[in-house]
């Protein structure tokens, strides 16, 4: 009898506790935990997201002939705007240079950066940022003329290598050469156009930069087949969006938008079939598209957030195919984990 009473009390207490825990979330719609999410509140009050992008990088962010920003990073900004406002056009793009990007984020000039930024320990900690995921695995590689017959980077002994100064590229090259006891002559040229010209004209045997950049350069050549990108990748450049410390909810939202885009690809939900998949029996699809569960509300947005994003922007594979494949970048390490890549989403539940 005593045991039963105790059990009932526990159950009632547990229910009450559960009720108090869920009630506030429901009561404070549509912006739960107000005051706890300064960035998100500011964006909502303003009615537009301010997104820091590059000043122009093929495939990632660049204005087209009509001045409309397009690219891989830009699509992430649009996805966040869709999650918050269900309107991909409510974004203001602020072009930021490599030097000014962190200040722009720290000072609140932009809400988030989707700007080809490598995730490093110091940026995550001492600069006061939160990286919300790796949406593109990049790394430094080499491109050589196919006619040279070079197959791996180790065969570059004694080669002249074209490199741009200032970024980590030059440092990585030197470190790699020292570690592998390879002698080379660097040809350091500041401007991208000129360094490519020097490589094409044969002033150097190889050209080194991030693999995505190599692929873009290669595809812009009159005959891309004349150039080979070597399989060796000598540095890790995990790129991803980042936000300021101090708004965990906004960081969570960005993190789960990225995972949602990956999950959608994994589950085969595309912008074309999202409408039909709304009635899909798969519970995870139902939860992701907001048909069941409360995943959107937990993040502080509408439950249909992911459905809206996929409808407007597409899933990860679509974003990649639209922006990066035309400039010759293959999925490579950015394939889903199910296809031998590194892109992996935690479960939606």
């Amino acid at each position: 009898m005593k045991a039963l009473r105790l059990a009932v009390a526990c159950a009632v207490g547990g229910l009450a506790l559960a009720a108090t825990m869920t009630t506030p979330t429901r009561a404070q719609q549509p912006a739960p935990a107000a005051g706890n999410a300064p960035t998100m509140d500011a964006i909502r009050a303003r009615g537009t997201l301010i997104c820091g992008v590059t000043t122009g990088l093929a495939g990632f962010a660049q204005p087209d002939s009509q001045g409309v920003w397009r690219g891989f990073d830009v699509d992430y900004c649009r996805a966040v705007a869709v999650a918050l406002f269900n309107d991909a056009n409510r974004v203001r793009y602020v072009p930021t240079t490599a030097q000014a990007r962190f200040t722009a984020l720290q000072s609140g000039e932009v809400d988030m950066l989707a700007r080809n930024t490598t995730w490093t320990l110091s940026r995550d900690t001492s600069l006061g940022f939160d990286f919300t995921g790796i949406n593109f695995y990049d790394g430094q590689g080499f491109m050589v003329k196919a006619s040279t017959g070079v197959r791996t980077a180790r065969e570059l002994e004694g080669a002249t290598i074209c490199v741009q100064p200032g970024t980590t590229t030059e440092q990585n090259l030197t470190d790699w050469a020292r570690a592998n006891r390879i002698r080379f002559t660097p040809v350091v040229i500041e401007r991208l156009e000129e360094v490519v010209q020097a490589y094409v004209a044969g002033r150097c045997d190889a050209y080194t930069t991030d693999v995505s950049g190599l692929a873009a350069t290669r595809s812009a050549q009159p005959n891309p087949r004349e150039h080979t990108i070597l399989p060796d990748v000598i540095s890790k450049e995990p790129l991803g969006p980042l936000v300021r410390h101090g708004d965990q909810r906004f960081a969570d939202l960005l993190r789960w938008i990225h995972f949602g885009l990956l999950g959608a690809e994994e589950l085969g939900i595309t912008s074309a079939n999202v409408q039909q998949r709304m009635t899909d029996a798969n519970p995870e699809v139902q939860r992701m598209l907001g048909r069941s569960g409360d995943l959107g509300r937990m993040l502080g947005v509408d439950n249909a957030w992911m459905a809206n994003i996929i409808r407007t922007v597409g899933n990860y594979g679509e974003i990649f195919a639209r922006n990066l494949e035309p400039i010759g970048i293959q999925r490579g390490p950015n394939a889903l984990w199910t296809q031998g890549g590194l892109q992996y989403s935690p479960p939606f539940r």
């Binding site: 000043t55 122009g56 990088l57 093929a58 495939g59 660049q62 204005p63 087209d64 002939s65 873009a216 595809s219 812009a220 035309p326 400039i327 010759g328």
Partner: peptide, 8 residues
């Protein structure tokens, strides 16, 4: 300069 960033 930005106009000629596009690979094409």
């Amino acid at each position: 300069k930005t106009a000629i960033v596009e690979p094409a």
